[in-house]
Design a protein around this nucleic acid. Structure first.
Length: 633
DNA sequence: AAAAAAG
């Protein structure tokens, strides 16, 4: 079937595709055309109806159901007590000895398919199983997705050094069984096929369960999302019943807020968190820009415990008084260094400091990232109270799994060079599918142009960047993940956090200006303990990155071309902001441990974040030379 | 100088 229409996103095309979905249940894909943004020619592409069918059916069901019951919940009921018959007397307190477990995890029977008639809580419909246990007809695509997808390669995470600082750091655990997360959550952990906690989870979860604030640096792809989700979900389940404020009738009162820098990352965190909270009664809602706000408001009104959001949309919701942060007990910033850099900091300050969120010390705050420059650590300490700093990683650890290559390529040769790489990559295909290749470029225009050029040269490519509609962005990501379009051209919107299985190759077609961005970009491959390849095109315009790139590669035991070392030594005098200072033997360093000589000591300690305790560390800062880089500071 | 995040 061919759709000779102009644009995929055009409403008329939407209608036609929707018609196909509804009238041809067995139709899996169709071909459509759209006009290239950079020329007037038509680009042919396949539309995966199967994927769209699922999401649209969901959408339709949601809006229909939301319309029919828009009831609001008057009283807070702790999640583990929801969906039970109305109790004759007050439920037993958590400490009561009821059959060994104080969790009272609901049994499946009374849980599934129960439409809340008289319950005080109220789920409007059965919870969708996010694990998709009941499969309806596996096809080739699912086989591709499931292949090798047996969870995380935990062996890759043994013996990774860890640095913690702060007062009274709780000891790490070695198994999930040691942690009292509750039966429902444990079951979800099993469903996720997580056998053992990753290092960051081993350390971060006890710290968070202990009620402590946390600043955590851990390699890309090492399980940070679960590290902050588990304690939040567990803590909410454990929580005492609270009366939520009733003034401001329209507002909802989430108990936890998770912020992330891009919409797709928020979507991903939401999907993860929904898996972890399945059948725990903890409700997770996501809110982000570029999508209709009304649907998100309806989702919120159906009840929210954990709100995952991007900053802009959240500010919008706060200003409309649809959301109040008054009841926030947990605040998590993913990619925290990004969230606190120049572009985002004012918005984050507004959300965290100038709305009605409880202050540090009252709420619990967790910051996670793979990179944490010291300037950002200083900013971040405003949001924290007596926090523990955690760095997980060993020299070259995450990057051990990633083979890094740098090639000298003139600007004008980049395309033909890329084509060589892609041809080589074709041979590495799995089951007739080309291995996934993620190509980073510097600009949105450049992304469109490269996508067009690749398509014209018979490479199935798509692109994701901020000038595309949200629908196009999500479709591009979906098409890439499914292997249908095995080449994705991306700006930095895709640099952080996105977990895309089977990315075999990250190509830095244009290198970023900041080495931290490079770390995050290449971290899209080599995830969950699997190997990956990263290739960078370097030329004169990247000279300012040479030093930090060479240092990073050296730390990761990578082969460094001589010409790059020459660039590095040439640029060594330019004290660019790219140079990492004071790296350590491994991992990031707590900025509080940097010798107080450099900035008049009391600066740090006056915030009340810590009361001494670092006296013994004064010799530490001097022990490590300048210019030693680390992927995790 | 660019990207991202509200519409």
């Amino acid at each position: 079937m061919k759709l000779n229409k102009r644009e995929r996103a055009h409403p008329e095309v939407e209608k036609i595709l929707l018609f196909c979905i509804q009238s041809k249940p067995n139709l899996k894909a169709c071909v459509a055309f759209r006009v290239s943004p950079s020329s007037s020619s038509l680009i042919q592409f396949r539309v995966l109806l199967r994927a769209m069918r699922a999401s649209w059916a969901d959408l339709a069901a949601n809006s229909a159901a939301a319309a029919e019951n828009a009831t609001s919940r008057p009283v807070y009921v702790p999640p583990h007590l929801r969906n039970r018959p109305p109790p004759a007397e007050a439920p037993a307190p958590a400490s009561a000895s009821n059959a060994g477990s104080r969790w009272g995890a609901p049994r499946n029977k009374e849980f599934r398919g129960r439409s809340s008639g008289g319950g005080s809580g109220g789920w409007d419909r059965p919870e969708v199983n996010p694990f998709g246990d009941e499969k309806e007809g596996a096809d080739a695509e699912e086989a591709f997705n499931e292949q090798e997808n047996t969870g995380i390669n935990f062996d890759a995470y043994e013996d990774i050094p860890v640095e913690t600082s702060g007062e009274n750091v709780p000891p790490a655990v070695n198994t999930f069984a040691e942690i009292d997360l509750g039966e429902a959550l444990n079951q979800n952990i099993r469903r996720c096929k997580y056998v053992r906690p990753t290092p960051v989870q081993r350390h971060a979860i006890p710290i968070s369960l202990g009620g402590r604030d946390l600043m955590a640096c851990a390699q890309t792809g090492s399980g940070k999302t679960a590290a902050f989700c588990f304690p939040i979900i567990s803590g909410i389940m454990r929580g005492q019943p609270l009366q939520r404020p009733s003034r401001g009738v329209r507002a909802v009162y989430p108990l936890a807020l998770v912020l992330s820098p891009t919409r797709e990352l928020s979507i991903q965190i939401h999907e993860e968190a929904r898996k972890f909270s399945y059948q725990t009664g903890v409700r997770v809602v996501v809110a982000y820009g570029g999508a209709p706000i009304n649907q998100q408001v309806r989702d919120l009104e159906r009840g929210v415990d954990i709100l995952v959001a991007t900053p802009g949309r959240l500010v919008d919701l706060l200003e409309r008084s649809r959301v109040s942060l008054q009841m926030i007990r947990y605040l998590a910033l993913d990619e925290a260094d990004r969230m606190l850099d120049m572009g985002f900091e004012p918005q984050i300050r507004k959300i965290v400091e100038q709305m009605d969120m409880p202050p540090p010390g009252v709420r619990q705050t967790m910051l996670f990232s793979a990179t944490f420059p010291k300037e950002i650590q200083r900013l971040a300490s405003d949001f924290l109270s007596n926090y523990i700093f955690l760095a997980v990683g060993r020299v070259g650890s995450s990057t051990d799994l990633i083979v890094q290559r740098v090639e000298y390529v003139q600007e004008s040769d980049k395309r033909s060079h890329l084509m060589d790489l892609l041809h080589a990559q074709r041979a590495n295909g799995v089951q007739g599918k080309q291995a996934l290749t993620l190509v980073f470029v510097e600009t949105k225009k450049g992304a469109d142009a490269l996508e067009y050029w690749l398509c014209r040269n018979a490479f199935p490519a798509t692109t994701i960047h901020g000038d595309r509609t949200q629908q196009e962005r999500e479709l591009a990501l979906k098409s890439f993940k499914s292997g249908n379009t095995p080449i994705l051209v991306a700006t930095d919107v895709a640099a952080r956090g996105l977990d895309i299985p089977h990315v075999a190759h990250v190509i830095n077609f244009d290198l970023p200006n900041d080495i931290d961005d490079y770390v995050h970009r290449i971290g899209r491959t080599g995830r969950a303990g699997k190997k990956g390849l990263a290739t960078a095109f370097f030329n004169d315009s990247n000279a300012s990155l040479a030093r930090s790139l060479a240092d990073l590669m050296q730390e990761a035991n990578q082969e460094i071309p001589d010409w790059l070392l020459r660039y590095a030594s040439r640029s060594s005098f330019s004290s660019g902001r790219n140079r990492r200072s004071g790296g350590g033997r491994f991992g990031g360093r707590d900025f509080r441990r940097e010798g107080s000589f450099s900035r008049g000591g009391s600066d740090y300690y006056s915030t009340g974040n810590n009361s001494g305790g670092y006296g013994a560390s004064s010799g530490y800062a001097g022990g490590y030379g300048t210019g030693v880089t680390s992927a995790w500071d």
